[in-house]
Design a protein around this nucleic acid. Structure first.
Lengths: 351, 351
DNA sequence: TGGAAGACTGTGAGCGCTCACGGTGCTCTG
DNA sequence: CAGAGCACCGTGAGCGCTCACAGTCTTCCA
């Protein structure tokens, strides 16, 4: 009889057992001299378990090296223990900006402490977005952290329909269905910085703004205008196409060309500011002597520039904390409200 | 009768049905006029399904909006469809270096295309490491991508015992159990750069090396020595404590102090090189006129420094590709061998 | 001292899927 | 034209868990 002949029905159970990974609850129960139910109770920390039973079960678990099969558990509880961290951003520029990395790390850590896993998902293309939706509908994840940089994100409209709890990081879309969001106070931070530059004696302020469909491009520019009012000429505003060093350099050059008399510039992100600093240096302008430069984010790079960057601190780990708290509340059936976290000024040497 | 009174046994099935997320295979089968088995077959792309049945099932799935319950499937197939991306690094410095972000993004993308998810896990603390192990044993993931920067990583020793396929990114531990690994040719790249600096006329080469328990600290330094042999004095070598801008600046200052006559420096990572460039600038040395500077990684920042950095390119997306390919082969029961990918020189302006 | 009110425990019925098997009905050959 | 071979299909068992329920055994008050 060849090896691959069908096994006799009677032996199938044994064959299955042979290939299975580890001991089951039944094995633990047997060894501990109790029933499945009791093992389940000690596992889930329920009361009404005698201390002897509990001890016996724990010892049996130790001896067998038992570890619960999450799939079986999820099948009945309908919760996977995982959270999707969805990044809706064109994939090529990702992680160039340390802000995202910091957020991701904090969330992973926080979620881990809650015994939950983080699934990273990209949502730059339509195909990827479909995958996220499919994932959410399939019960793979208990909730979604949507890190959406741009307004009008299609996912922001589609995700709520899946019924999975979602919390948005950044600004929630104004028109879409109401989802709680967590954000830093971009506008307030921009006001802080602009006022500070003024206080330091700046007379002719300019700004490098981010793309208009992002918080950095809209809110931070709005904050700048809040303080300056009508006083700001159009040529004092340059738009960066994206949040990269290259773009910052280009925008600063444009400013230098169109508004050469500027004596201070508020740059909408630290990474952009690195580029701005380079352009300024190349143009022979000294920072902060000739031009004051203020950034935004207080990302890791801010203290490493020359000169070190005065910037607006986004409380990223706090944002991460609120993000997971809000999501967990949502999953728990509560209806948490959105939160906007205060930003603060970090003084270094560039202004 | 209060709302929370126990439901009548007869109605329990209905109650369950009410709270369940979506239609099941049974519903689809009924609507399509076939059986569960046939639905399963079209789902899993098996043959022996008539085209009418297939069409009927597909139409029924469309109508009901059916999406397979991954937990139920995983329970029987014993595979979760997810891969753990484990970062064994002290959490505070994470993602400062864009290299990791790039790797993470590529892997997420590649895995996504395979219909697999990526779970991000930190393994900086003992507790986190325990969580990773537990996760692996619990069948949460089908495989692990261990991104280990330092030698002697405890996980590298413990993970194989879980029976879960593992592939290491970077160097595999020499003494541990044999696990396939994927790495860039650090040593070869360092040789390339060192030779290039020599060819450009450098006479007194120095190097900023990374921590000795990392590939960047050991292999890249070895490559440097391969080319220079005995000619390199001890004071021409500075160790950075970690791969940060700050550390690069410190190491370069040290070099400048102990070996002021240097006319070229090979820096073991781009981020370190940013700091080195700053120290050089602060010391009034012009790059590349007075000192040639070569980096390593070709990360996003390399083209944004002043002057743009000549560096050694790590084929990161290719590394990611091999990483998932090797892991998938491992999961498929094959025994792939380790791979070392060639590095190449990228000439910009710093050397 | 009867029995109600606990504390604790065991059991059955699933969760939604896959897989192997056994069955149909058809075609094609000797 | 018997029956082997094939394509297709339905069914039962079972993956490892949780949850509600139905016990059993104590305790303690009326």
């Amino acid at each position: 009889m060849p090896d691959d002949a069908p096994v006799h029905p009677k032996s199938r159970g044994a064959a299955r057992r042979a290939l299975r990974r580890g001991p089951t609850m039944e094995d633990v129960a047997e060894l501990a001299g109790v029933s499945r139910g009791t093992v389940s109770r000690v596992l889930n920390g329920a009361m009404h378990v005698s201390s002897e039973s509990r001890a016996a079960v724990q010892e049996a678990m130790r001896q067998t090296g038992y570890v619960v099969n999450q799939n079986a558990r999820s099948l009945v509880t309908r919760s996977s223990g995982a959270i999707a961290f969805v990044l809706s951003e064109p994939p090529d520029r990702l992680f160039e900006d340390p802000v995202l990395g910091t957020l991701l790390r904090s969330c992973t850590q926080l979620l881990g402490e809650q015994g939950r896993g983080l699934m990273l998902m990209l949502a730059g293309t339509a195909e990827e977005r479909e995958r996220v939706l499919h994932f959410a509908r399939g019960g793979h994840v208990d909730g979604v952290l949507l890190v959406s940089m741009h307004d009008g994100d299609p996912l922001a409209a589609e995700l709520p329909a899946t019924g999975v709890p979602v919390v948005v990081c950044g600004r929630a879309p104004a028109d879409g269905p109401a989802m709680p969001y967590v954000a830093a106070d971009d506008r307030g931070g921009a006001r802080l910085m602009t006022q500070y530059l003024l206080d330091r004696g700046a007379q002719r302020l300019a700004t490098v703004a981010g793309p208009p469909d992002t918080a950095g491009g809209a809110e931070r520019l709005a904050g700048f205008r809040d303080v300056l009012g009508r006083r700001v000429p159009a040529r004092a505003i340059a738009r960066a196409e994206a949040y990269g060093i290259e773009e910052g350099r280009a925008a600063m050059s444009q400013l230098l060309h169109g508004y050469p008399e500027l004596d201070a510039v508020f740059v909408a992100s630290d990474l952009l500011a690195v580029g701005a600093l380079q352009a300024l240096h190349a143009a022979g302008r000294k920072v902060p002597e000739d031009v004051l430069v203020g950034g935004f984010d207080d990302s890791a790079i801010a203290s490493a520039t020359m000169p070190p960057l005065t910037t607006v601190r986004q409380p990223l780990s706090q944002v991460a904390g609120e993000l997971v708290e809000v999501l967990l509340q949502l999953i728990g059936g509560r209806r948490p409200s959105s939160r906007v976290l205060p930003t603060s000024l970090v003084r270094r040497e560039s202004a």
